[in-house]
């Protein structure tokens, strides 16, 4: 199976820190940041390279703040 590599970009200003995406990630690639955005919400961030670009986090995000990339390697 061709290996894939994924990556995400989070619009941290629009993340409301709801954490609904955290459980959605099958490879535990994301966690809530210790830092907060200008609204005072802890935003989500990628914490390792496990991401496979499966889009789970993005499609369950109520505010649609996650863009997902994927490449075959």
């Amino acid at each position: 199976m061709a290996k894939v590599k994924g990556d995400i970009v989070v619009d941290i200003e629009r993340c409301k820190g709801c954490e609904v995406c955290i459980a959605a990630c099958p490879v535990n690639a994301i966690e809530m940041s210790k830092k907060v955005n200008s609204k005072g919400y802890h935003y989500m961030e990628k914490v390792n390279d496990n991401c496979t670009g499966c889009t789970n986090c993005a499609i369950v995000c109520p505010d649609g703040v996650i863009t997902v990339y994927r490449v075959k390697i």
């Binding site: 590599k5 994924g6 990556d7 970009v9 670009g53 889009t55 993005a58 499609i59 649609g64 703040v65 996650i66 863009t67 997902v68 990339y69 994927r70 490449v71």
Partner: peptide
Amino acid sequence: ENIRKKENIVYKK
């Protein structure tokens, strides 16, 4: 850098 290219987008708003 080279993952985050337009053509590699699989999901966006």
